[in-house]
Design a binder for these strands. Structure first.
Length: 423
DNA sequence: TCTGGGGTCCTAGGACCC
DNA sequence: TCTGGGGTCCTAGGACCC
């Protein structure tokens, strides 16, 4: 059996943990640059705040409905996520952390010794008590079905207590009949359109449809899903693997026209990618730089371009990668456009220290020691960083974060002070 | 003025090899 | 130039996820 554990309204819930006055209040968490809504408490959903709502268009709405609006605080969410995952690990040795707020647990043979419904209740109790984050638990014989069970647990809290188990065919059929095809894990926009054209509107319709059609039109991925929903397990927990791509991309707080400004951003993004690369002890063999105008501003000239630069040698040095990124930028930068977004992606990794000997072109060996030193100083100093000369010393890329909550759990100065009274 | 960011896997087709 | 069969590697793009 598998369980899918999912934190309810995760970012909004994290904000609430350290601010009890937000309990039962509508909360909306904004994306980078305070652009649009990316997480909502139940109360905010009820009040009618849509997912992805652009903040500037909803200003009045927020005020009228007394929505508490906050900037996203990833230091807080990352730390809270670790706490949740640590607690979950106590319930089984087999766990796959699927995203910042979700994990699959595997219970091999547990059903012989435990009442899994009761076990699910315990998981929920322990995590909520230990972290303050409410969760939903779905349990079923396959991963795809545990996703379905989780949806039911979340949708009907009164009936299920946020824990639901699919452990027989009757429950499975009932659940699949209830679930619209577009809400099935693995069915996105494209497949929904094609399936509906075949008259398929629920998950149950889907598993009763011809297997051949599914295989032909949805490939091996679709076929696996089809089997999983029928109760035949095809997907096991996945091993944690190192990343195969690392990206840093951002929208700008305003349109940029100036080459120097954009170059500074690209170099900063590149340094961020290089830091992540070194954490993974990898070097990259290729770097992608892209640049785009604001697609929402239809009256402005539109432009998008990207350039893939194959590197002459693998590296994870800030200095070398910054040079290559600038080279790539120069291939695509065009004067006269108003740029809104840019990004850097590093790909094609090889492990650190296994560089091929290349007589003429190689990563400068001195950079390794230098980067180690830079990383260690940056770690110690926190936000005061050693930067390259091309980077702007004053800025970070999160320019607009007007309603940022404190780093309650990761920064000592922001920790909550607890007063004690004599009884 | 103002609309997120970061990933994975699979497939088809081209280039090339014997 | 045509005639045949069998294979690999790489890349772009599609589809999906949170």
């Amino acid at each position: 059996m598998f369980a899918l554990v999912d934190c309810n309204n995760f970012y909004a819930s994290c904000e609430r943990v350290f601010q009890p006055k937000l309990r039962n209040q509508p909360i909306a968490v904004l994306s980078n640059n305070d652009g649009c809504v990316i997480s909502r408490s139940n109360e905010a959903k009820k009040a009618g705040v849509p997912m992805g709502a652009p903040a500037y268009k909803f200003q009045d709405f927020f005020e009228k409905n007394k929505i508490h609006v906050v900037s996203s605080n990833y230091a807080l969410y990352g730390d809270m996520s670790n706490r949740v995952m640590n607690l979950l690990s106590e319930f089984t040795p087999e766990i796959e952390i699927y995203s910042i707020d979700e994990a699959f647990l595997k219970f091999e043979g547990f059903e012989k010794h435990f009442d899994l419904q009761e076990y699910g209740n315990q998981i929920r109790y322990k995590v909520t008590k230990g972290t303050g984050i409410p969760i939903s638990v779905g349990i079923a014989p396959t991963k795809a079905l545990s996703k379905v069970a989780n949806k039911i647990a979340k949708k009907f809290p009164e009936k299920t207590g946020n824990v639901y188990i699919i452990d027989n065919d009757e429950k499975r059929i009932k659940a699949l009949n209830w679930l619209p095809i577009e809400d099935v894990w693995g069915i996105g926009y494209g497949h929904t359109k094609r399936l509906k054209a075949q008259g398929i509107t629920t998950a149950l319709d889907f598993i009763n449809y011809e297997e051949k059609w599914v295989q032909k039109n949805m490939g091996i991925v679709g076929l696996r899903l089809y089997k999983e929903l029928q109760g035949i397990s095809c997907l096991d927990l996945e091993e944690v693997t190192d990343k195969k791509n690392i990206a840093t991309t951002r929208s700008f707080e305003t349109n940029y026209k100036d080459y120097e400004l954009i170059k500074e951003r690209i170099v900063t993004f590149t340094v961020s990618c290089a830091e992540k690369l070194r954490k993974q002890k990898a070097c990259c063999n290729a770097i992608v730089v892209f640049l785009k105008t604001n697609r929402h501003r239809k009256e402005l000239d539109q432009y998008y371009s990207n350039y893939v630069l194959q590197l002459p040698f693998p590296t994870n040095s800030n200095i070398e990668l910054a040079k290559f990124a600038t080279e790539a930028l120069n291939k695509i930068f065009k004067e006269g456009f108003e740029y809104k977004k840019a990004g850097v992606i590093v790909t094609d990794f090889s492990p650190e220290g296994t560089q091929q000997l290349n007589l003429f072109q190689n990563s400068n060996p001195k950079h390794k020691k230098l980067m180690e030193t830079v990383d260690s100083i940056n770690r110690k100093m926190g936000t005061i960083k050693i930067k390259l000369a091309t980077q702007d010393l004053k800025r970070t890329w999160k320019m607009k974060q007007e309603k940022l909550s404190p780093k309650y759990s990761t920064k000592i100065a922001d920790a909550i002070k607890v007063k004690a009274w004599d009884v």
